[in-house]
């Protein structure tokens, strides 16, 4: 199937983009990598009058270190993040998560900013951002603002993005020696939407956890930070007993939404499988370093 007819504009400057957004409002859609939008158009689930191709805006590209944070521009593709030496050094969780995003051809096209603006509950980048306490950078004709990722994602496909705003990028804190990251997800086939996924951003002193951020994807309508369980783990060594306490806590804390093939119980179980795996891996890693 082919999309309905639409007008196509490729602005060369941010000002032009804002002008188009202002004059066309909800009739215009922003095209970045097209990972989701093009499929939606071709299935005629959406018929915008105007598609604004922002791939000509160079200021939305690039990965750079700004102070103690790593900024990734909105138009950076999944593949660019996957292959970036800067990312693997300063934000290794993103390097681990990238291969889980769909397939190579899609990763070559889909973008960091597109995934964030779309806010799919099973998407990897929003989940990683919430786990790492990342910030989303937004720009409108009235100026720029930064918002914490956990405040940016509000509800199913609903973000704090205003109608006249665009996502220009997002930043995450630089990883230090004390930090430990992991990302894993369970899908029916590789590249499918994950049934459940978990991003862990932890920091340790020796073998003792100082902070263990747990963000689940595919569980709720937005990335799910398991804050009660996180609080339980602070100041603990993640030995077997502690991990089992965390799993029991997660079973009580997580209230997953079902999909057509997975019940809430299945998803809750899979989430705890991931938690057990990743927390045990964290402990093994820190024990090896501490010895």
């Amino acid at each position: 199937m082919k999309s309905a007819a639409f007008d196509y504009v490729k602005p060369a400057a941010m000002a032009e983009l804002f002008e188009l957004l202002q004059s066309h409002g909800d009739d215009a859609r922003i095209l970045a990598g097209g990972q989701t939008l093009l499929a939606t158009l071709n299935m005629r689930l959406s018929e915008p009058k105007l598609v604004i191709d922002i791939t000509g805006l160079q200021e939305l590209r690039g990965i750079h270190q700004v102070g103690d944070r790593l900024f990734i521009g909105a138009l950076t593709t999944h593949t660019e993040i996957e292959n970036s030496a800067l990312v693997s050094q300063h934000a290794p969780m993103l390097t681990m998560a990238a291969p889980h995003i769909a397939h190579r051809a899609i990763r070559n096209s889909g973008t960091w900013g597109g995934s964030i603006a779309y806010g799919d509950p099973a998407a990897e980048w929003p989940c990683c951002l919430c786990a790492m306490d990342g910030h989303v950078h937004l720009q409108s004709p009235n100026g720029s603002r930064k918002i914490s990722a956990t405040d940016f994602f509000i509800d199913l496909y609903t973000t704090a993005l205003a109608p006249d705003e665009v996502v220009v990028g997002a930043d995450v804190p630089l990883a230090s020696q004390a930090d430990w990251f992991a990302f894993d997800e369970l899908a029916r086939r590789h590249g499918d939407y994950a049934v459940a996924g978990l991003a862990v951003a932890a920091s340790f002193t020796g073998k003792v956890a100082q902070r263990v951020n747990l963000a689940f994807l595919g569980i709720g309508t937005i990335p799910w930070r398991a804050r009660r369980t996180e609080a339980l783990l602070v100041g603990k060594t993640l030995d077997l007993a502690t991990v089992e306490i965390a799993v029991a806590s997660l079973k009580a804390e997580l209230d997953p939404l079902p999909d057509l093939t997975h019940s809430p119980e299945t998803k809750r179980h899979l989430a705890t499988v991931l938690a057990r795996r990743l927390l045990s891996a964290a402990h093994a890693n820190r024990s090896a370093i501490a010895v």
């Binding site: 299935m43 709720g220 999909d259």
Partner: peptide, 17 residues
């Protein structure tokens, strides 16, 4: 239809919303 093909994943969340 296409909604069933692609929409099944988030139907519950959408309905609740």
């Amino acid at each position: 239809g296409k909604l069933g093909l692609v929409g099944g994943r988030m139907i519950d969340g959408a309905a609740k919303q």
